[in-house]
Simulated scan of single mutants.
Amino acid sequence: MTQQTQQPGTTSDALSAISAAGVSVWLDDLSRDALQSGALKNLIDTRSVVGVTTNPTIFAKSIENGDAYEPQLRELAAAGASLDEAVLKLTTADVRDACDLFADIHAATGGQDGRVSIEVDPRLARETEATIASAHTLWETVDRPNLHVKIPATVEGLPAITAAIGAGISVNVTLVFSLDRFRAVAQAYVDGLELAHQAGRDLSTIRSVSSLFLSRIDTQVDKALDEIGTDEARALRGKAAIANARLAYEVYEEIFSTPRFEALAVAGAHTQRPLWASTGTKDPAYPDTMYVDELVVADVVNTMPGKTLEAVADHSRADGTDTVHGTFEDSRQILDSLERLGVPYGKILEGLEEAGVASFEKSWDELLKDVTDGLAAAGS
């Protein structure tokens, strides 16, 4: 049921409450139009937004639909820029400007928030060395301390995460689905911190988040439950992703309370915060604020598409109460029940990683086409 409608230009009580509880509200969207029109600044002022995430899909849509890119496309066409050069310059310009917009938040939070993410070329998801090289290129091109370079959590991506962190590059690890991979990502981060420490780097400047995707899990698990069709199966619909995320938080607390990490923390290291991603519900039967309301806990990020952000502002029931601690045993029972019913949970998560990489590769191809068409139009 919708509560009292949030008026434009005012701060949402729910967003303020979860922010005060330790949830960093980030926007899962970025466009030059939003930067230039002041729309993004307005979300900072009225929606408690303290960071931004991007991905190839967001950039493809932004450039396809935005006239704001035409002046830079004309400059790039006149300079004879290659396609790859043009894509790099277009995307990093937006991210650099967003980093500048969030610079005050970055300073006020000691570097924790005010973060803007940009992803390495998704076609490199299975190539460790090429991913490392791409991460360095993005880090050096944007040249802002509040950047996060997004690296996918593939098996090949794990050593790239370690190498990037070891080089002092802050990383947003994307496309995390399983608890095993969430744990492996955290270990890769700690490995990287140790490399950075050995190299004499200032660990306090290095930040990282591990992006656990949510709604995509429920979409696929619910399909399997619907095929089973029993009352017990139907009762588990829409519960897998939240249970998975809550147990990931348990893993987070475990790993970042070990003597190994505590030694790094003394040297200035920060934990790798869980980030709740894919938080827009895809099943209309579910509350559109579900992946926010059910995952309120300290030291996490929730990155929301604009529609979800406005839904939370308008009618979320979140009041800052912790909805994660005290749920771990129930969450284990939910995942155990899925396995007992015959839901191929592990295979579903493996398939989601493959599908996620493929989806971003497709979006990258669309981005390349949009930039190719834009350069051609600008040069004609």
Results as ranks from 00 to 15, higher is better:
225 L>I: 04
323 T>V: 07
343 V>G: 07
200 G>E: 02
160 A>P: 03
13 D>C: 02
112 Q>E: 06
127 E>W: 01
364 W>D: 05
215 S>P: 07
75 E>G: 10
204 S>M: 04
350 E>G: 04
370 D>S: 15
74 R>D: 02
283 D>Q: 08
4 Q>C: 09
359 S>D: 15
228 I>Q: 11
219 T>S: 15
38 G>D: 13
133 A>S: 14
269 A>R: 04
47 R>C: 12
186 A>P: 04
72 Q>N: 09
122 P>Q: 04
375 L>S: 05
303 T>M: 02
323 T>H: 10
302 N>M: 02
88 L>C: 08
50 V>Y: 08
191 D>A: 12
16 S>D: 12
143 D>I: 03
11 T>N: 02
124 L>V: 01
345 Y>E: 04
104 D>S: 14
151 I>L: 14
278 S>Q: 07
87 V>W: 05
243 A>S: 12
294 E>R: 14
110 G>W: 11
210 S>M: 04
357 V>A: 01
214 L>Y: 02
342 G>V: 11
70 E>Y: 13
173 V>R: 10
157 G>I: 10
365 D>I: 09
129 E>I: 03
303 T>D: 01
278 S>M: 05
36 Q>L: 14
242 I>V: 15
363 S>Y: 08
243 A>W: 02
285 A>I: 04
365 D>M: 10
35 L>K: 14
187 Q>P: 01
98 A>E: 00
344 P>D: 07
31 S>P: 12
223 K>V: 14
80 G>S: 03
94 D>N: 05
71 P>F: 05
98 A>N: 01
163 A>P: 01
348 I>Q: 03
79 A>I: 03
360 F>V: 07
322 D>Q: 00
110 G>P: 04
80 G>M: 11
128 T>F: 15
112 Q>C: 02
237 R>Y: 00
152 P>R: 10
376 A>Y: 02
200 G>D: 00
240 A>K: 00
260 R>P: 10
81 A>Y: 10
78 A>N: 09
130 A>K: 15
190 V>A: 12
182 F>T: 06
320 G>S: 04
259 P>Y: 03
276 W>P: 12
112 Q>N: 09
126 R>W: 14
204 S>G: 11
78 A>S: 12
177 F>G: 11
266 V>P: 05
259 P>C: 10
337 S>D: 15
74 R>S: 13
330 D>F: 01
125 A>I: 01
24 S>R: 15
376 A>V: 06
202 D>N: 14
332 R>V: 00
265 A>M: 09
176 V>A: 05
87 V>C: 08
23 V>E: 05
123 R>Q: 12
